[in-house]
Design a binder for these strands. Structure first.
Lengths: 122, 122
DNA sequence: TACGTATTTTAGCATTTGCTTAAATAGAAG
DNA sequence: CTTCTATTTAAGCAAATGCTAAAATACGTA
């Protein structure tokens, strides 16, 4: 936490200040988007989001069947997504359905679109 | 790893099969995009990517100054981004500059655009 | 009320992550 | 060739992650 501020001559103090203020101005979005990307940055959760976009709504049990994973593991992923309001739950009799939160589609759609982009240079 | 296949009647076997095959067909992109999102899903790395997009190229030292973080910590983040080819390094005298990999802009730009979207419902 | 299905929650644990500090490289310049 | 400057790498560690297994809820239904 000490050795910032480099000594090299080429360092452009003006540029550094500009960058600092632009980062500061975007602090909230940076935190929020990082959080969303982090949630989507897990293969299981990305699959869940993709499936919910495709099927509109699914229950834990369906997801467990499709992804061939433990119900509990899926449930814990759904909780994280719900905690951050990316998805919401509706209860119908004994079944709880999950769906993408409409308010977050502006953020989620561009992320999910990456899956269908041909120009993915892997 | 046992209790998948739910017993409930509403479960649509056809739908489950469809979902399974669509997931299987997208397995590679799902893995790759999850990996990229995971890299971008860290505030420090997201800031680095944002700054590189804005400034075209920066060295560890600049980033350390701007983000007010340990050079070593930044270096380790840069390594992760470089290992996944999201950025590349060019050496100029004693300084190593990093820049976004052009081949990955189709993936990176939509991600970074999320920062400037007004419709971020936080 | 007792049971069964659907789902969540808790606890435990191994793995991963991200930071700090210190040591190792590499190239310039004295 | 020794000394800066820039940067990476390695070691250590605390915190976070993601899974399993088991217990706890919730809600219909026999």
């Amino acid at each position: 936490m000490e050795n910032h501020t480099c000594i090299r001559l080429e360092a452009d103090a003006m540029q550094i200040m500009d960058c600092r203020s632009s980062i500061a101005a975007l602090d909230k979005p940076l935190s929020y988007i990082a959080e969303v990307l982090n949630l989507a940055g897990n293969k299981v959760r990305l699959q869940i989001l993709f499936l919910l976009q495709r099927e509109k709504r699914l229950c834990v049990c369906d997801l467990s069947d499709i992804l061939e994973m433990n119900v509990s593991a899926i449930s814990q992923h759904l909780r994280k997504l719900k905690d951050r309001d990316l998805i919401y739950a509706t209860k119908e009799a004994q079944t709880i359905f999950y769906a993408l939160n409409k308010d977050k589609l502006a953020t989620l759609n561009p992320i999910l679109d990456l899956l269908n982009t041909e120009n993915i240079a892997v």
